[in-house]
Structures are given as C-alpha cells and as structure tokens.
Design a protein around this nucleic acid. Structure first.
Lengths: 225, 225
DNA sequence: ATTATTTTGTGATATGCATCACATTGTCTA
DNA sequence: TAGACAATGTGATGCATATCACAAAATAAT
C-alpha cells in the first residue's frame, strides 16, 4: 500500500522539486487509497488536518451555496487538493468528490508544513499555484455571473476538451444536474442548450458521449451570447 | 520619502514576523507613494514586477469581465496587493484602484521573493492569507450568483459596516454604478433597492451617508430574498 | 455664477431563465 | 426479467431584473 514517493511517477511540478529527505518523509507519512467514482475525498463541514494528493483520476470541487450546490471547478491528476481549506480553516469549507475512480494520498498537514519549510523551490511552486488559482477564480466568477447560459455551456464543453480530456471527443463526466451546478443554471436549461447545440451541428451527442464538431462556433458562443 | 520599515507602524501580521535583516532589505528597496482617490495602483493588462503594500487607505480590486467591469472586493490597509497577479502572471490580470487617498509602498518582486525564502513564519502567514482569500472567493462567487439583488446589497452594506469601516454609520466609498459592479447588477437596481431599504427604515440615507438602523433586518434579507 | 458633466431617481417595456409538470428513457437491483 | 429509481426531454407559465428613456439633482469646470 505504501508506494515510495521517490519513484512514484505521478508528480506535479512542485513535487519534482523536493529533496530526497522530504520525499522520504512523505513516503513514511502518507496514506494511499483507491476510491471509486462518487466517493467523497474531502467533505464540507468536517474537521480535517490532511492535505490530499490526487494521484490519478478526476475530481470536482464543490460547496453549498446559499441555495444550491455549486461546483467550483474540476481537477485532474496530478494535483494537490484541499490546500486552501486545510490551511485556511480547521473545518473544511468545501467538498471534493471523485468523478472517476481515483487514487489519492492523504498527507498530514504538519508533515506538509515541514516540507514547505524545508523546500524553497517547492514553496515557490505552491505559491505560484495559489496565485494562478486565485486569478482563475476571479475570471471564472466574472464569466459565470455575466455570461448567458449558452456562453457558459460552451465554456464548460471547451474546458473539458482542452484542459480535462485533451480531446474533442469525450464522455461527459457529470450528469446534467451537475453541469447545471457548474454553470449556475437549472438542469432543464442544460438539457435544452445541449440539444440545441446538437441540432445546430456544433456538437454530436450520443448519450453522454460528446464530439465537438465546430470548435470555432463554440468559441464564438463563449464570447458572445 | 524612505520610511524605515523597522519602525513603520503599519504592519500586517505577516510583516511583524520579519527578521531585522529582511526589514532592512525592505527599507532600502521600496518606493513610497501617496496617491489620491481614483488613482490607479495596479492596472490590468500592464506588465509588472512589483508587489504593493497598502499602508493606509482603501482600495478596490476589479477586473474587466466579458461584458462589464466587476469589482472583486474592497481591501483596506494594512494589506498586500497584487500578490496573485504579480506571482501568477507577468501581465496584470486585474486592476487595483484607490477608493480613498492612500499611501502605498511598491516592492520589487525579487526582493519580496527573497524575503519569502528567508522567513518561514512570514511565508506561512502569506500562504494562510492566500488560503483564506481563496475560500472567501468561493463563498463570494456562490453568493453573487445565487442571491437576489436585495440579498447582495444587504451583504455589501454589512461588509462595509463590519469589515471596512467598523461602524454602522459610514459614507459609501463607491458610486451606485460601482456598487452595481460589486454586486453584479445594474446601476438602476442599486438605486431602487437603496431607496427601498431607506423607505422601509432599514437604513437611513443622506446623500452617500449611510446609517444602518435595523442590522437584524439586513441580516435576514442577506439570508433570504 | 454659469455651463458642463457626472450621478441619481423612477417609470415602462422586454427578455432570459427558473420553475412546475409530466412524459420518456436509461440503469441498477432483487 | 420485472420493478424501482435516477436521469433526461420538452412544453407552459411567471418573475426578477436588465434595458431604455428621461428628469432631477449634485458635482466639477470655466
């Protein structure tokens, strides 16, 4: 169950900068788990002192808004999860749930903190990550609140293609209800827009299988209405 | 013009943890400026290699969304500005503008990075800040997209009272058009809601002077519609 | 003081989308 | 192979709020 972190092939840019002694510390202080699609990785409202490393698979970050659940973003491996909520608060302020089968490593916060203290380059990379995430948050929020549904749907489809699956053909990892939470709309509207895109020949939809036919059109819709 | 940072009375929790040598480095490598209300501190789209310390005054962080300007949040001194945009991107991804007269210190990114490298406690505090900001972003975004205008207006008024001015009587630091950008609505709606709150005796408004009369009502409106 | 310019108040109209309601299809399980 | 439950498609209706269009007031500029 205990992989040697030094030889683990799943590393972020930050992780690849760790000294051997820190990697040894990680090896001896992490809990490796295989979780199934739908399983909770981090749960909002729970007390936690762990940082999570997503070794393989896909996860969603989501939280309870004032009325409905909101999916903040999708994260694919390799990536750290829960840094903001673990460092920023004793109680988890958001949830992370597996969207595919995943492998995760739980790392104690104190161990992680020590590793930060001992590895300047690692710390720099982590801070860079924080910064990029915050900028991304700003942009995302502005889009969500200002764009119409078609624009946000187009964004989501492009995001899956470009950043998550790196292919214009993929299987939607979320239900339509979840997609609604991702782009702040209703389940019904997701269904309507998706069938509309299909009818217009912008995408081809077979069940949850998506093929993007006219990427340029999607980009235009993303920019305009 | 060059204050000695060691004796500067305006310090964040993080800054108070710096060693003397780092404070000396700061003293010799910062540019102190007094800016006036409305002046730009950080400008979206500009190349920048500076971190800014807001010594005194009030500022707004804002960015160009797909259609309109969005005010992300208000920041009052003492606080660092522009860490995400300076670390995360060469080009500024958002703007910061003085909302009152302010004093700011520009610090070169390399100097700031060295200080991070040399001060573990400082770095911890900065990371904590990042985490809290990110959590705050998530919450803010969920509220903005899910709440109705009255709820968001109530939030803004409470935020000013509780976090910015620490008093239930204050002068609105933003025009109604800016308030609209802060809570993602139209200028007209801001005007309507504000007069409504006034008529209902929840606030008393004399020009831009605000007095919160029924704080509990505002909290209720924030929670419900 | 007198324009000029920005800021604010308020009605009328239009619209994007949530909500409700129900049919249909797909998927798991006993 | 049913029977149950979850996920999806689609119409009809209502509502919050953006937008347009001015008037009034306040602030700045000459």
């Amino acid at each position: 169950m205990q992989t040697d972190c030094k030889t683990c092939p799943f590393k972020t840019k930050a992780t690849s900068m760790l000294c051997d002694c820190s990697l040894d510390a990680l090896t001896n202080n992490h809990l490796e788990l295989k979780l199934k699609k739908g399983d909770s990785i981090i749960k909002q409202g729970m007390y936690s002192t762990n940082v999570v490393f997503l070794r393989t698979g896909l996860a969603k970050i989501h939280l309870a808004g004032p009325y409905t659940e909101q999916i903040v973003k999708m994260v694919n491996a390799p990536s750290y999860l829960g840094l903001p909520t673990t460092f920023g608060s004793k109680i988890n302020q958001y949830s992370v749930t597996a969207v595919s089968d995943v492998e995760v490593c739980f790392i104690d916060l104190e161990v992680f903190q020590t590793i930060l203290d001992d590895n300047k380059e690692f710390t720099r990379e982590i801070i860079q990550e924080f910064c990029k995430n915050e900028l991304e948050s700003f942009r995302r929020c502005a889009n969500r609140t200002q764009k119409l549904i078609r624009g946000n749907m187009a964004d989501a489809l492009l995001e899956f293609a470009n950043n998550i699956f790196k292919s214009d053909t993929y299987t939607l990892p979320l239900s339509q209800a979840e997609l609604a939470n991702l782009i702040d709309t209703s389940r019904e509207s997701v269904s309507r827009v998706l069938t509309e895109f299909d009818k217009d020949g912008i995408i081809q939809m077979t069940g949850k299988q998506i093929e993007i036919l006219k990427k340029e059109s999607l980009k235009l819709i993303s920019q305009n209405g």
